[in-house]
Amino acid sequence: MLSNAKLNEKIAFGLLRLAMGMVVAFVLVILYYIVSNGYSAISLDFIFSMPRNRMTEGGIYPAIVGTMYLIIGSMAVALPLGILSAIYLTEYAQPGRTTWTIEMAINNLAGTPSVVFGLFGLAMFVKYLGFGASILSASLTLALLILPVIIRASQEALLTVPKEYREASLALGVTKWETIRRIVLPAAIPGMVTGAILSIGRVAGETAPILLTGAAYFLPRLPDSVYSQFMALPYHLYVLATSGTNIAQTRPIQYGTALILLIIVLFVNIIAVSIRSHYRKKINR
């Protein structure tokens, strides 16, 4: 009897270990292929020069610049909105129908497929508001896409600020907003920054929304206004890998582009995670 139970346990734990091992293996295999094939393509010239010869040679500079513009544009919109919205929800909102509606909307925005955001951006920003296929349209679309991420992360950060801080400040005759501004926000900022940084990774990697709102296959020069079309890293990779002029020949450029994308995203994640763990240590003290 007992030995049977023990045997079952051995088998079960073996399977659990195997499953965990597979998950880790996926991570390592994907990273290995991208890194080992991509690193030889990367050089300063690759990063800082324009594509040449119908994108079969040269660098990916315009795609990097385009992705940077998207990050700046979407963060400029989503970060303040998201933080203010989180402050409202955690500090002011009373439980009730309005708050329920807002929470429901955030949850559903978070779960809406990015290609649907793309359709929306196309219908509203590109067509209806007449922004055209442009950095502006794509940034606004991406801003809505990451809004729930920023709101959730900021809410979480605000909730970790102990209630005692708020009470102490209010009991000194300080107004609610002054309390939030001087006590709650400074304590919550590391957590908010984490959320913001994570959404940078999201913006850098999203393809479907920008495909519908302004990303260009190839542009001979850098965008000169928010109404310009743009190249972007993820779309560039997609184009080269599926419909470039010579898919096999440009394989190194594809790996290089994938690696640059991966580096941006992982770098951003590492920063976010280390800020978060540093901050947790401080709180637990």
Partner: peptide, 25 residues
């Protein structure tokens, strides 16, 4: 609340310097 101060069960200093805690109000 300025006129009626309150001290709580658990000490709740702000995560700032000693000086800034006092100077805050």
């Amino acid at each position: 609340r300025k006129r009626v101060g309150m001290v709580f069960q658990k000490p709740n200093p702000f995560p700032m310097s000693i000086h800034d805690n006092i100077a805050y109000g």
